[in-house]
């Protein structure tokens, strides 16, 4: 379980709030989407959980433990993270990239390689073809899958994903979302998924937290948010795609 209690992050000596007193709970086995436009504080919220950003105030508990209590390196190694910029190491082949979390933990090379091959297979990149390729030799979508495989390498209980499918075309994105859903069903991770795409949030998440200007506007299941929007902002946000969808179904039916 991930619990955030009244966490804030300010810049400029307290004048600007990136995150303004948010509280939320991610239940075990659940995927929560943080949905909002750029600058709403969703990435900052995610980074606070593995201490890439230190909150100015508030408490964050992972597995019941205050994350500031222990060592931040150990915390980061215990959480899978898919970065917005992917961040594969260009000088390491895909198998070595995937195995990095294991290398950091001192797992010997042979089991490391075996696990990397297994994970490449899991994200639909057959290791016989892809293990020896380098990041620059594969497409953006394939790189993002390697990023997901790397996040899974240490078999973490928690998975933080920051727009993991941001850099791919709509079709690939759709496929990757479906693959993620299948993975989710198999692996039962507790995860937070940051996105600005409403349809992506509706597809991958069990519950959605709608963020705006550093605050959570509403947190609930898709059905709850669609049927009872908590604010004009949420109504507007979901209203437009709903109208488009309506328009589309009217036209095709």
């Amino acid at each position: 379980m991930i619990v955030i209690e009244n966490a804030s992050k300010t810049f400029d000596g307290g004048r600007t709030f990136a995150v303004d007193g948010i509280s939320l709970t991610v239940r075990d086995g659940e995927t929560l989407a943080l949905l909002g436009s750029s600058g709403c504080g969703k990435t900052t919220t995610l980074k606070m959980i593995n201490r890439l950003v230190e909150p100015t105030s508030g408490t964050i508990l992972v597995d019941g433990r205050d994350i500031t209590a222990g060592d931040r390196i150990a915390l980061r190694r215990s959480i899978g993270y898919v970065f917005q910029g992917i961040g594969l190491m260009p000088h390491l082949n895909l198998a070595r990239n995937v195995a990095l979390p294991l290398r950091l933990r001192g797992v010997p090379p042979a089991p490391r390689r075996a696990r990397a091959r297994e994970l490449l297979q899991l994200v639909d990149l057959p290791p016989d073809v892809y293990a020896g390729k380098y990041p620059a030799q594969v497409s953006g979508g394939q790189q993002q899958r390697v990023g997901v495989a790397r996040a899974l390498a240490g078999d973490p209980d928690y998975l933080l994903m920051d727009e993991p499918f941001g850099a791919v075309d709509a079709l690939t994105r759709d496929r990757l979302q479906q693959e993620l859903l299948a993975l989710k069903a198999r692996l039962r991770k507790t995860g937070i998924f940051v996105t600005h795409d409403i349809f992506e949030a509706l597809t991958v998440a069990d519950r959605i937290a709608v963020m705006h200007a550093g605050r959570i506007e509403q947190l609930g299941t898709a059905a709850e948010i669609l049927s009872r929007p908590a604010s004009d902002f949420v109504r507007e946000l979901f209203g437009k795609p709903a109208r488009q969808l309506q328009l589309f179904t009217d036209r095709t039916s």
Partner: peptide, 26 residues
Amino acid sequence: APDILEAAEGLGFTARQRLWMVELPL
């Protein structure tokens, strides 16, 4: 690239590991 450094930090590289495994090779 900042993306690479952020990933290294977020994966839990120590400063020394980041230097030897990422920054110096690149």
